[in-house]
């Protein structure tokens, strides 16, 4: 298994852990607090999610790099060539389509007069699904070829 494949798996695991934990935390807070202003609660949840996710993801990548170097005793050069860029573009495209599908689905929940919590929950889940698909697509393209 190549370095990039291992990195994709590590990224996928961290996305699942961070995203899953954050979603559970927000749902628990929502049920415990029963906020009067739902719009404010869910908008804050999404806005806080972005920096928290980025920060924890950076930490996860650093931990992976250290563990990988210890395990393989080889420090992989962190350069991106044309193949890496092509795989990145294709993965971002898959991720984008997933989020757009979730966004349209969220709009449908609003059109059908569902509660605001449903709309934001669909948005958060589609964001997580897009991030997961990004890692899965990267692993797939590195393994199968482009």
């Amino acid at each position: 298994m190549s370095y990039q494949e291992r990195r994709s798996i590590a990224s996928l695991i961290s996305t699942l852990l961070i995203g899953g934990a954050y979603l559970l935390y927000v749902l628990q807070r929502y049920q415990a607090d029963a906020p009067a202003n739902e719009l404010h609660f869910w908008a804050s949840a999404i806005l806080i999610m972005i920096p928290v996710y980025i920060l924890l993801k950076i930490v996860a990548i650093i931990v992976f790099t250290i563990l990988n170097t210890i395990a393989t005793r080889v420090q992989e050069p962190d350069i991106a060539d044309e193949r890496d860029r092509l795989i990145e573009l294709k993965s971002v495209r898959s991720s984008y389509y997933t989020f757009m599908f979730g966004f349209v689905l969220a709009m449908f929940t609003a059109v059908l007069s569902m509660p605001a919590s449903t709309l934001f929950l669909v948005l958060i889940i589609s964001l997580l699904a897009a991030m997961i698909l990004y890692d899965v697509a990267q692993f797939y393209f590195y393994r199968r070829g482009v």
Partner: peptide
């Protein structure tokens, strides 16, 4: 000027270079 993995992929026919 590419990574070793890219050369591996080209050799195996998994990637067509520019």
């Amino acid at each position: 000027g590419v990574t070793r993995q890219t050369i591996v992929a080209i050799e195996k026919g998994k990637y067509s270079p520019s």
